[in-house]
Design a protein around this nucleic acid. Structure first.
Lengths: 252, 252
DNA sequence: CATTGTGAATTGATTCACAGCG
DNA sequence: CGCTGTGAATCAATTCACAATG
C-alpha cells in the first residue's frame, strides 16, 4: 500500500486466491475439532456447515490445494489437517513478539491459541521502564530499547503491535528495520511499510461501525415498502464483507 | 449463515456495496484527523493516501453516498465527516454490552475509541460471581444471570462476546433472545444465529495464520525461478484479502 | 485546469450444475 | 450411488480513463 502502483501478483505465488487463504484457518479449526473427536472422515457438506461456509465454496477452495478427497466418501480428517497446516506454514514454529503490553497486549500474551498452532510468544516488549522485568503470562516484559536485539536473537519475522496509535508507526518502522516482515496491527492507524512486508489490521471500532451501519438499516425497516410489494422478513447475515476488514482494539 | 440458502440481497438495502461500507470507517478516521488539524478541504488523492487506499476506489466509494465533492477542489472535510457519520449511523448513540470480562474483555472495556464515536459501554457482564460488583474501567461488572434484564433495560442492540469459546454460542443465544441483533464475536467459534442478526468476528489466530502463509512464501523465494525469467524484487502487501476475514482473540 | 464522478473494462470471488469417479 | 472436483455462469469489486464541471 505504501509506494504507489507497484502491485504485482506476487502473493498469488502458486495461485491460491487470497479469499481461500483467509478461509483455510477456519477449515483447520473445524477439522481439528473433528480430529479431537476421532472422526475419521468428513464430507464437504458437513465440514462446510461446521466452518460456516457453503459446500461448493469449500470444495473449490480445496481444489486449489490439490485433490485430497475421495469421491463418494469425503475427506480424511487427519490428512486434511496435515495438508492445510503445511499449506499455511504451521508445520514450522513461528516466534512472535508482542509490542505494547497494556490491557490488550496482556490479553494477547495470555491467549491460549498461540502455542497450539505453530506460534510461540518469543518476547513481550513495552516502552514503560516500570514494566521491564515484570512477568506477563509467565514471560518477562523487556524494554523497547532492546527491540532490535530481541528480534534478531530470536529470528522473529512476525510482530504484533498493541501500542497506542501514536507509537504504532514508529514501532512498526523499528520492527521492519530489524527484520520483521509480517505485522499484525491492533493500533487504529494506517501503517506504511516497504514492499515485501505484510500488514494485517484488527480494528474494534471499525467492526462496530460496520455493525452500526447494518443496525441502522434494520431500524428504518418498514418504510421504503411504499411502492415495492414488500416481501417477507429480513435477513442480514453480514457475511463479513470482502476485504478482510477487521476491527481495531487498543488500550486507549 | 445459519439456515440454508435463504440469502436475499437484504443488506444491500439502499445499494451501498459491502466493501464500501467496510471502508467508510477508515475514511472517517482519516477525516477526523484532518478535521482536528482544521484542514478545510481535501482531495481524493490526499484522503486516499491517508486512508491507505487508492483514489479511484475512494471516489467510487463516495459516489455511492452522493456527490459531496467539488470538481477542481476536493471534499469539504467537515461536511464529509458528517455525511459519513450519518451514513454509518454514528449520529445516534449505540449502547453496547461486553460479555466475558477476562483479559480481553477488560481491554475492550478500557478501549478509548468506544465513546468517541457513537458507542457507549452500557454494561459489562461476566459469569464469575466473584467478578460481580467489581468495577472495570469504572463500570461495575454484572452477573450473567441478569443478562436479559440488562439488555432490555438499556435498549441494547449490539453485543460483544469476549468469553471462552465454549460459552460463546450459549451467550450468543441469550443475547439474541433478549433482543440483540448485532454481535461482535471475539471467541474462536462459528456462531449460529437466526436471520436478521449480524455477526462479525475478530480472530487473532486466523490473522496470524494468514500472515504465516505469506511469510512461508517469502522464505521459499529464490526457487521457482527455474524456467521463468525471474523479474525483480518481491512485493507482498497483503491488502487484507476479501471478505472480512478477521482474527480471534481470547483469554484461553 | 485540477479534480470529481462515472461508464466501461477488467479482475476476482462465488455459485451453479453436472460429469467423473471410488 | 454419493460425493468430489471443476468448467461455465454469475455476481461483486476494482481499476481505468475520460468527459463533465466548479
Amino acid at each position: 500500500m505504501a509506494t504507489g502502483r507497484t502491485h504485482r501478483p506476487a502473493t498469488r505465488s502458486r495461485g491460491i486466491p487470497e479469499a481461500t487463504v483467509a478461509r483455510l484457518p477456519l477449515y483447520l479449526r473445524a477439522l481439528t475439532a473433528l480430529s479431537e473427536r476421532s472422526v475419521p472422515t468428513v464430507s464437504s457438506e458437513e465440514l462446510a456447515a461446521a466452518a460456516g461456509v457453503n459446500s461448493a465454496k469449500l470444495r473449490k477452495d480445496f481444489s486449489y490445494l490439490g485433490s485430497y478427497g475421495t469421491r463418494g466418501v469425503g475427506y480424511d480428517v487427519e490428512y486434511l489437517v496435515y495438508q492445510i497446516s503445511r499449506e499455511l506454514g504451521l508445520t514450522q514454529d513461528w516466534p512472535v513478539v508482542i509490542v505494547g503490553i497494556g490491557n490488550l497486549g496482556a490479553a494477547l500474551a495470555n491467549y491460549g491459541g498461540f502455542a497450539s498452532r505453530g506460534f510461540r510468544v518469543a518476547a513481550l516488549i513495552d516502552a514503560d521502564p516500570a514494566m521491564a522485568g515484570k512477568p506477563v503470562a509467565g514471560i518477562p516484559v523487556q524494554h523497547t530499547d532492546d527491540l532490535e536485539k530481541i528480534i534478531s536473537d530470536n529470528g522473529v519475522s512476525i510482530g504484533v503491535i498493541a501500542t497506542p496509535a501514536g507509537a504504532a508507526q514508529q514501532v512498526c518502522d523499528r520492527l521492519v528495520a530489524a527484520g520483521v516482515t509480517s505485522i499484525l496491527n491492533f493500533a487504529p492507524t494506517v501503517l506504511t511499510v516497504p514492499d515485501g512486508v505484510d500488514v494485517r489490521k484488527v480494528d474494534l471500532s471499525i467492526e462496530l461501525q460496520i455493525l452500526a451501519f447494518h443496525e441502522q438499516r434494520k431500524a428504518g425497516e418498514e418504510h421504503e415498502a411504499t411502492a415495492a410489494p414488500a416481501p417477507a422478513a429480513h435477513q442480514e447475515s453480514t457475511e463479513q464483507g470482502p476485504d478482510g476488514d477487521v476491527p481495531a482494539v487498543m488500550p486507549a
